[in-house]
Design a protein around this nucleic acid. Sequence first.
DNA 1: TTTCAATATTGAATCGATTCAATATTGGTG
DNA 2: CACCAATATTGAATCGATTCAATATTGAAA
Lengths: 351, 351
Amino acid sequence: MKGTIKLADVAKAAGVSQGTASNVFSRPDVVREEVREHVLETARQLGYPGPSLTGRLLRAGKVNAIGVAAVEPLAYFFDDPWARALLAAVAQVCDASGTGLALVSAKDRQKLDWNIKSALVDGFILLCVEAGEKLVQLTRERQLPFIALALNDDDPSIPSIGVNNVGGAAAAATHLAELGHRRLAVLATKFVNDHVGLVGTGEIERAIYSTSRHRAIGYWQALEEFGIQRHDVPIYETNNDKTSVETCLEHLFSAPKPPTAILAMSDNIAILAMSWLATRGLAVPEDVSIVGFDGVPEGSMVEPGLTTVAQPFAEIAQRAVQAVLEDAMPTKREMIDVTLVVRGSTAVPKT
Amino acid sequence: MKGTIKLADVAKAAGVSQGTASNVFSRPDVVREEVREHVLETARQLGYPGPSLTGRLLRAGKVNAIGVAAVEPLAYFFDDPWARALLAAVAQVCDASGTGLALVSAKDRQKLDWNIKSALVDGFILLCVEAGEKLVQLTRERQLPFIALALNDDDPSIPSIGVNNVGGAAAAATHLAELGHRRLAVLATKFVNDHVGLVGTGEIERAIYSTSRHRAIGYWQALEEFGIQRHDVPIYETNNDKTSVETCLEHLFSAPKPPTAILAMSDNIAILAMSWLATRGLAVPEDVSIVGFDGVPEGSMVEPGLTTVAQPFAEIAQRAVQAVLEDAMPTKREMIDVTLVVRGSTAVPKT
DNA sequence: TTTCAATATTGAATCGATTCAATATTGGTG
DNA sequence: CACCAATATTGAATCGATTCAATATTGAAA
């Protein structure tokens, strides 16, 4: 079409000042009814699409939207159960407060850089599952408020919200131990890059990914209370995907004395494991008990329901969004507690 | 912090004109290397966060982002399998073209209105599963390019991309009939608002939701080729959720001669049905064959794999994004073909 | 009729960049 | 040394709204 109609055109056509015209749209109560009606009518006739957002935000300086960023392909937000659950919660909070939501991501460093630089948002929520420092650094340059979630780094200068991984993991392990399980195995999320399979205790203690490390430590601590030594609990590192989980399970269950219970560091791993066990004819919880971690909705939909350590997604989202919007970034790491949710996937061991 | 640093400050501090400073950031090749370095250094020392997007886009008039909108709570995008699959595909296309992605939605009419009006995007992709006309109308006012997906309306003046529902449904029904099934039932998506359960053929022919109507017609056409009359195929309307699907199944399988095959109008319904059948001790495909519709990734992850009518999400996303970005809206409805994907959930009926 | 307060409207300044015609600089030639 | 073309830089105009101090209008009370 031709040059679009702008507020000034409407004002002129309606015979009022631009200021009045502006008020008609953004503060209608302040202008006399008949003038308002007349201006609106004129606008309609001219086909004025309403105040342009760019002009408006140039003055306001606020976009009224937050970005959620991750070092992953954009599709990650829709594929990964944890990301999905978190985003659904964030979406809910945004919905309530009339805040927009923009997805920002890229696996490729350069693209991510550009995407973060050019996202029209007032602040960022960072999903630091991987390459968190890179993400934080890039975001810092943008000089917008941000908050990191699931940060694998203890740097206190990074505003972040974390969950009590040690405590949660301990609760999961305690639950299994109390049921009577003594032969346990762990299916872990990443400790280091590019490794899958059995991993030694020393490597874990030195692992760069602190989320996985903390969960492992939580398991160990709890099990030691029951006289189970860390060396007796094999820990398998997975990529949080079907292939690697199944590889690990193959290995685990081809051993002479397979475990009676599995501690999974994510619900995703747990669910994948359950479906592998089902195809192997192993019943959950009769033959094998399993506990997940995260508390994603899928956990309550599988059969049997997954016992898991639930993160309070709603609360995390609430705090994160608020922190970003009000630039009320916590001065230090905030830590949120998790709760054990017992469903059908755990029971006393057979015999 | 205090009043933020702007381009003019940097320019002054570096002793160059604002124009040059601008060029340093947006067209670096045009300014002499040493000047550029000097300006950049000055900017760094001042802590200049780079050209403000608002200022830039005010002139450029482009946001470089598209919005995806639906008349649903924002969490819908992360909960519904179809929406998820589609968004993942859209995300992929956006990723490739460096376009941002914003999620716009609200169940409440007024909020939706405001959200659409205030979304910083260059155009919209509309998910018209429900209340499509409302959505289209709201978007029209914004005067931005848009394209409707899954539109339940044949109005040719609405730029839209649809799938061949009749053909797809026919393929699904033909597949089952060829396997030898003669007692079939349909689990449908919405025909009208606020109804669940058995629905008559007349109501279907008059249904406002054309997606469901077309799929029903496709089933009928194919089955008639095999001598199965439409009145012999019960059609149950669901809300595409667990509760309503199970209600319908209860009803369906408490009848004297339950069906040997189910035609589900969405994979979501099909998957819910499969898990209900499992808890009832009915084996798929031995006791009951089932065919879905959509081709969402979850369909290949359930056990057995779901036979379904797959939409080419990647192609749909590709075309939709392109249409919006280039404002190359199709002059009339575009129709995309679907393909039957046979997996393990269908087999010849047990005697 | 005058005065005053309350309410409406105006218009110029502003937000922070980009753009482009005009001007300045540079280096190479005759 | 003068001249020209090529290249760099400048600065004012521009994008489209909002804001707010100043001014105009209205209605009621004195």
